Amino acid sequence: MTRRYSEVDVFSPVAFLGNPVAVVHDAEGLTSEQMQRFAKWTNLAETTFLLPPTTAAADYRVRIFSATQEFPFAGHPTLGSALAWLRAGGVPQRPGEVVQECGAGLVRVRVDEQMLAFEAPPLTRFEPVGEPELEQVAGALGIQRSRIVDASWLVNGPGWIGVRLANAAEVLALRPDPAGLGSLCIGVVGEHAPGHDARFEVRAFLGDDPVWEDPITGSLNAGLAHWLRESGEPVGGGYTAAQGTAIGHEGRVTVSYEGDRIWIGGHAVVCVHGEVTL
């Protein structure tokens, strides 16, 4: 069956310098096995499949797959799917806001032309990382354990372990061994010196995945935003994070705090729109 298909570049105002997501529209009738097989074939970090919602509160439902597994939630696929749905003729129930149904529940997405932001879902695991796991994390990153300033579980879909280093230069200097990651999902953050256009530099490493360094990662940045605020970092009303620098991307993620709510935003551009036979 022929279905509409899009590829959207997310978290960069410049096309082809963000993080691409593949979006299959009109995905009714596809099995989980077919979705997983196609997601592996695209060779992108994630592929999404748009479906009719099962609740009147949502505008559409999405299923999100990496090359190896399905996620209940992921950040850049949420923004990319929302823009693809709108550009394909979707009309939200509330102007300027799309409500996405996914495995993690309902996620609100604000839309202002090509600038989108999702309301970060709650963390389902937020606690210190045990010492044996930290030794494994340090080994996977190729650094001494003593260089890890702080660490926390940041699970909101993917099972992130957040790691803080002394500064952005240390983050950019990391040369992890993909084979050493095992099944770990590690997100690393360090602060830039004053004068940089971003407050923090972020990198994301994915074990057991052919795309082992993710260019720009919404779910990780959502978890980091929660952790930084809860740990007492003076983040004020928000900040900008850079990601993808080490691998030739120019990702920028905006973090906004509104009371207890955290919004994760960035630009998105539809770069490919056509058809796929599935």
Rank of each mutant, 00 (worst) to 15 (best):
G236S: 09
G236Y: 05
G237S: 15
G237K: 06
G237Y: 09
G237C: 10
G238S: 09
Y239V: 06
T240M: 11
A242K: 02
T245G: 00
T245Q: 01
A246S: 14
A246N: 03
I247V: 14
I247M: 07
G248A: 10
E250V: 12
G251L: 02
G251D: 01
R252D: 10
R252P: 07
R252A: 14
R252K: 10
V253Q: 02
V253A: 09
T254I: 10
T254P: 00
T254R: 15
V255F: 08
V255N: 04
S256K: 12
S256A: 15
Y257M: 08
Y257K: 08
Y257E: 05
E258K: 08
E258W: 00
E258Y: 00
G259H: 01
G259I: 00
D260Y: 03
D260T: 15
D260C: 09
D260A: 14
R261F: 03
R261W: 00
R261I: 06
I262Y: 02
I262R: 10
W263L: 14
W263A: 12
I264F: 04
G265T: 05
G265D: 03
G265I: 04
G266N: 03
G266L: 00
G266E: 01
H267C: 13
A268K: 11
A268V: 06
A268N: 08
V269A: 11
V269Y: 07
V270Q: 10
V270H: 01
C271F: 06
C271V: 15
C271P: 01
C271N: 07
V272S: 02
H273L: 12
H273I: 11
H273T: 14
G274K: 04
G274D: 03
E275Q: 13
E275G: 05
E275A: 13
E275Y: 10
